[in-house]
Design a protein around this nucleic acid. Structure first.
Length: 563
RNA sequence: GUGCCCGUAGCUCAGCUGGAUAGAGCGUUGGACUCCGACUCCAAAGGUCGAAGGUUCGAAUCCUUUCGGGCACGCCA
């Protein structure tokens, strides 16, 4: 039984209210010297018709001391509970040592599948800084769900369909060169694509050719398909290099083209269920009852749309994975689109429509406004990654000249800094890309966390630490207790991060652990002369190291042992 | 015009299922390395929580209105 439950049941015995409800009322006092848990008595005042202060005093006197609690005090309208520090230290640290890298996890997911649609790159388009949020948020959620006993299914819903591929083929046949493209990759594909748009101004017939080529792709013409697949391969090789650097993998690359033959079923089903309506030549689902514009299923020329494809994909994923949840890590611009087609799925009579979640996030813009491939102010992800790694390399050369494999560590730290920046705040915040911010490693950043981890590793290494019996009563000073409290708060943070699909809750929990540990490090000498004291502090150091590593892992960030 | 989101310290943000003196980091100023990694730690300064009403014993948090910003609003994705 944990401390909170113990306190709640002790209170329940006195208040004749369910312990579960009372547990929900418990708060954390504003200052640690007031205690570890606080019970506000305002709500009881009404039913008991007594002053909250009087209730608090009475409770404090009559309450049986819950297990693990050393003191109960009334302060104003609150009953404050102070935990027995040694008991808390024992409970928290033993849990860390027994669960190890699984600390903060659980089996609550029960092996159920969670589909996570993220990154979803466009074929033959550059992988730029704007793709980072969906990529790293999705990756972190992937890890967080797995940690909690779910089975994550990472889906890269490739943007690999549309008339632009007809244009690509025309452009390639006119101005492309196989070797140049093999060598230059996506950049070369973009070049000829841009040229197409320039030349079509003077030669509109190019558009007709493009349409014809796209038709050939649709019909499965061998030559068209070969080129189409080749463009895909070129793009994927390139983005996979970035995924490798970021430590990201996907379970499926089923994208738009994959659902091409699966949309007829959706249209038929919508028609059978009487949801389709002809309006201005297009087939729509009327959503005016739900105060939304109609969801267009078929264009007036009979072609399918984005929503059609997303519905087809959702049905396919439900059939294939029987997901407990299906997350779409997509920028908030598409909020209405998701609300619309989620509603359509609901109207189709699928109760699992409630399991579809749009995990939206803010947009990335430059200091001079929105990024645009056409404007050419787009910042390529590879360039940012390289810059971050280079800067880290310089810092390492300056501060740790003797470190082996500097380049490898520089990559872990540089990339970690970048990933951290995207997972440190609430998703919804817009981000203005700025080199100074991106390359700032001071304060509450990835490198700070990694440094703390490396520092803990260093201490343990020098001490030649071996786990053993610990006298937990040694870890009762303010700094040790604060570190232990922070570590103890980690599991709840992970669970909440999953419930809200907000990885930053993990980041903040990790930062709290680091801050507490660094303070502990400063105030208490770990390598104390007394063996018992040293053993206890080393144990705390080891637990800290372990939880930081786990936390960074959930964010998709490496935890080097030296840096 | 309508809908959704955001507005908290100079800057970037936590806190928002209502609760005790509104918290961090950056930046600024000052301080701490004979000692386990100073990419660290400590301290100071800095706030009408956009504004106005309302609900409440109690509001940054809930409701209404309003101002400012972002996004979206039928055949793109």
């Amino acid at each position: 039984m944990d401390f909170k439950t113990a306190i709640a049941s002790a209170l329940a015995a006195q208040c004749s209210l369910p312990a579960e409800e009372l547990a929900g009322w418990l708060e954390t006092p504003p200052s640690p010297d007031m205690g570890d848990y606080a019970f506000p008595c305002f709500k009881l005042a009404k039913t008991l018709r007594k002053a909250p202060n009087a209730i608090a005093e009475e409770l404090a006197e009559t309450l049986a001391l819950p297990e693990g609690v050393s003191s109960v005090e009334a302060k104003g309208a609150y009953v404050n509970f102070t935990l027995d520090k040694a008991a808390q230290a024992k409970a928290v640290l033993e849990r860390v040592f027994s669960q190890k890298e699984r600390y903060g996890g659980s089996d609550m997911g029960d092996g159920r599948n969670v589909c996570i649609d993220y990154s979803s790159v466009n074929i033959a388009k550059p992988f730029h800084i704007g793709h980072l949020p969906t990529t790293v948020i999705g990756n972190s959620l992937y890890r967080i769900y797995n940690h909690l006993g779910f089975h994550s299914v990472g889906i890269n819903h490739l943007g690999d369909w549309g008339t632009q591929f007809g244009k690509m083929i025309v452009a390639y046949k006119l101005w492309g060169d196989r070797d140049t493209i093999e060598e230059g990759g996506v950049d070369e594909l973009v070049k000829i694509y841009v040229r197409f748009h320039q030349e079509v101004e003077t030669d509109p017939s190019l558009d007709d050719q493009a349409r014809a080529w796209f038709k050939r792709i649709e019909d499965g013409d061998p030559e068209a398909m070969e080129l189409f697949e080749w463009f895909k391969a070129i793009t994927l090789t390139e983005v996979e290099q970035v995924y490798d650097i970021l430590g990201i993998r996907f379970d499926s690359y089923a994208g738009e083209s994959f659902y091409n033959d699966k949309m007829g079923r959706v249209v038929d089903e919508l028609r059978e269920k009487g949801l389709l309506k002809l309006d201005q030549g297009a087939q729509i689902v009327d959503l005016s009852e739900y105060k939304m514009p109609p969801c267009i299923i078929l264009r007036s020329d009979g072609a399918t749309l984005y929503a059609t494809r997303d519905i087809a994909a959702a049905l396919y994923r439900k059939d294939t994975y029987d997901f407990a949840k299906c997350l779409y890590v997509v920028a908030y611009q598409q909020d209405l689109h998701f609300r619309q087609w989620f509603k359509v799925v609901e109207l189709m009579g699928y109760p699992w429509s409630k399991d579809l979640v749009h995990v939206s996030f803010g947009m990335v813009s430059g200091t001079e406004g929105a990024f645009s491939t056409r404007k050419g102010n787009m910042v390529k992800l590879r360039d940012v990654l390289r810059a971050a790694c280079d800067k880290t390399y310089e810092i390492i050369c300056e501060k740790s000249p003797d470190l082996e494999n500097k380049r490898a560590v520089a990559q872990q730290v540089g990339v970690g800094a970048l990933v951290w920046n995207n997972l440190y705040n609430g998703r919804i915040k817009d981000v203005v890309f700025d080199w100074n911010t991106v390359l700032n490693f001071d304060g509450e950043t990835g490198p700070y966390v990694q440094y703390t981890h490396a520092r803990a590793c260093s201490v343990l290494r020098k001490a030649e630490y071996k786990p053993g019996d610990v006298d937990y009563s040694i870890l009762t000073d303010a700094e040790s207790a604060a570190a232990i409290t922070a570590i103890g708060a980690f599991p709840d943070a992970v669970r909440e991060a999953m419930e809200k699909n907000e990885p930053y809750l993990v980041s903040r929990a990790v930062i709290a652990i680091c801050a507490a540990f660094n303070k502990f490090y400063f105030e208490q000498r770990i390598m104390a002369d007394t063996p018992d004291v040293r053993a206890a502090r080393l144990a705390l150091t080891d637990a800290t190291r372990s939880v930081i590593k786990t936390g960074l892992g959930l964010l998709g960030i490496a935890a080097p042992e030296r840096m």
